[in-house]
Design a protein around this nucleic acid. Structure first.
Length: 214
DNA sequence: TCTCAGATTAACT
DNA sequence: GTTAATCTGAGAC
């Protein structure tokens, strides 16, 4: 897999950063979560591009007791009941802004939490925003990702299928070894293997094993 | 209106 | 391994 490692911090040509189409998100959130591993998350901020390669995701939907949309629409989660492919941002523990992209084959509610990315472009800006030097500590967690990529409430509901301030593109298009594991930090439906990680990435935030006992 | 749990992180021991 | 920081929604009364 050394052939597909991407250590560069050189900006990719903007023309190649075409957002993934709406159809990509109009599937079961689990399928979208798995497919997003290896894609590039693009954040445009004050004319600067911050790009990270997605290495860790989690799927949630309305039938999932661990999901924010399990109990139906509220002012906070309304985005997850709208058209797939939009940003759902929530404040975790009153401190951290976490980024989801809405995804579902119906409008019943669902989304994919982006938990970690491998910084590719704008690394120095991310370092500055995070106040950390270690590249593996810049976006290896949902709250860290939010801080590094300037994920803020103003981005709530952003259409991520257009080349705006926030979107996801196919990126390198290289194949990825995706591993399914239990989700992190939840007590309900904790046995579902709805967390997806790049098995080879050192930027994954949590454990790489399948269950509590291995 | 009050209380509690929660899709987290970083500092401290 | 433990704990503090801090906001939101849900449920109980």
């Amino acid at each position: 897999m050394a052939d597909r490692r991407l250590e560069t911090n050189t900006a990719a040509p903007a023309a190649k950063l075409a957002p993934l189409p709406r159809d990509f998100y109009c599937r079961e959130s689990v399928l979208v979560a798995e497919a997003l591993v290896g894609k590039w998350l693009v954040r445009r901020l004050d004319g600067v591009e911050l790009i990270g390669r997605i290495v860790e995701t989690e799927a949630y939907d309305a039938e999932d007791p661990a999901s924010h949309c399990f109990r139906g629409p509220t002012p906070r989660n309304r985005a997850m009941f709208g058209t797939p492919g939009h940003a759902y941002i929530y404040l975790s523990h009153g401190l951290h802004h976490c980024l989801n992209v809405t995804a579902r084959d119906t409008l019943a509610g669902g989304g994919v939490l982006l938990r970690a990315v491998e910084p590719l472009v704008g690394i120095e800006i991310m370092r500055s925003r995070r106040g950390r030097e270690k590249i593996t500590d810049l976006a290896s967690g949902p709250g860290k990702l939010g801080q590094a990529l300037a994920i803020e409430p103003a981005l709530y509901g952003t259409d991520m299928t257009t080349a705006g301030p926030l979107f996801i593109c196919d990126g390198g298009g290289t194949s990825v070894t995706v591993l399914a594991t239990p989700r992190i930090g939840i007590s309900r439906a904790a046995d579902r293997l709805w967390r997806f990680i790049d098995a080879q990435s050192r930027f994954v935030a949590g454990p790489r094993r399948l269950g509590r006992s291995g």
